[in-house]
């Protein structure tokens, strides 16, 4: 019985929250609607933008600024901290482990968006309009619905290593190697290849995201254009490359951008699978370890600043794309 009263209470809180949210948004927009003619444009703009802007300013802009400042200070304590200038960055670039961490992150961000998009696009094209498209889509989408903890366990049953003559294989990949007459490999230990095996897990998850978005985009390319290209004698590959890809370019940019940023921030997979051992750590994982496991807020913040810098090229590229779109419009 306690469960049920508990349940009502919790859903009560939820509906109250939803109602309060609806009321606030409703009132703000209603007032904007009734605003006096003079200054109405501004008031309406404010009504639409300010809720998001206020939340972002408090929850992300302020922390970002704070983090950037902390990167130049020693570790935070209840007794304050000191200005240390560039010491945290000097530390970072003089630690050989951190150099590896940064190189790993670059490998991740180069490979994950590329592979996820290629697999997602290929799959979306191959299954387009086929029988059982929905089911086929769900199979590749499923990893998106699995938490990182779950993904870690799942891939353990793929990568687990046992030496020949001592035990049966538990990991499928090593069992396949054994069936092929090869020696099993400790996939997650041997650097640098272990990073690639972690990347496989991320690609496995993100391909579903790419596939779903790209599939929707492909369906938006007018069939007439493809048909016309065909009549002009283009083969399947040519019409794909010359008609479909340009038609979905906008979505491609969105997909690659989103996956790149998600990859830069990835830390759960690394943490769940190797804990950053065997030279597999990435910047986001190292930042978490430094800032929270060790309380070294200065080092952690400096690593966060490196992440900010790494995302700059992606931001700049998107700004260019947006400008072009504006010109077209």
């Amino acid at each position: 019985m306690e469960f049920w009263s508990d349940l009502f209470e919790k859903f009560g809180v939820m509906f109250l929250g939803l109602a309060a949210f609806a009321a606030v948004v409703g009132i703000v927009l209603f007032l904007a609607d009734r605003a006096p003619k003079r200054g109405r444009d501004f008031l309406q703009l404010a009504a639409f933008l300010s809720p998001a802007l206020i939340l972002l300013a408090v929850g992300l802009v302020y922390p970002a600024i704070r983090t950037t400042i902390l990167a130049f200070f020693s570790r935070q304590t209840a007794n304050g901290s000191e200005w240390v200038g560039l010491d945290n960055f000097v530390w970072m670039f003089t630690q050989p482990e951190i150099t590896i961490v940064i190189i790993n992150t670059l490998i991740w961000v180069a490979l994950v968006p590329l592979l996820s998009t290629i697999f997602g696009l290929a799959y979306a094209v191959f299954i387009d309009k086929s029988h059982g498209e929905k089911v086929l889509k769900s199979l590749v989408f499923m990893p998106m619905a699995i938490s990182f903890v779950g993904a870690g366990i799942i891939w353990r049953f793929m990568y687990e290593y046992r030496e020949v003559g001592f035990s049966e294989q538990i990991g499928l990949l090593n069992q396949i190697l054994v069936w092929l007459g090869q020696d099993p490999q400790p996939f997650l230990v041997n650097s640098p290849w272990n990073t690639f095996f972690l990347i496989v897990v991320m690609v496995w998850i993100q391909t579903g995201f790419a596939m779903v978005l790209l599939s929707a985009a492909i369906k938006g390319v007018p069939v007439e254009i493809i048909e016309a290209a065909r009549l002009d004698g283009a083969n399947a590959w040519q019409s794909f490359w010359n008609v479909t890809v340009p038609g979905i370019r906008g979505t491609l940019v969105v997909v690659v951008t989103t996956i790149s940023i998600a990859t830069l921030k990835v830390f759960d997979i690394v943490r769940a699978m190797t804990g950053g051992n065997f030279n597999t750590s990435v910047v986001a994982n190292e930042m978490y370890t430094q800032a929270f496991n060790r309380g070294e807020t200065g080092y952690g913040s400096a690593l966060a600043v490196v992440l900010f810098v790494m995302v700059l090229p992606i931001v700049l590229y998107n700004v260019r794309v947006m400008r072009k779109q504006k010109e077209i419009r």
Partner: peptide, 27 residues
């Protein structure tokens, strides 16, 4: 070392939880 698991290099790939259970298997 490392009974039930392999040679020296299998030490790091064996979880500490599993580590001693080979005693039960007699390995």
């Amino acid at each position: 070392v490392n009974g039930g698991f392999g040679g020296v290099q299998s030490i790091v790939t064996t979880t500490f939880q599993d580590g001693g259970l080979s005693i039960l298997d007699g390995t």
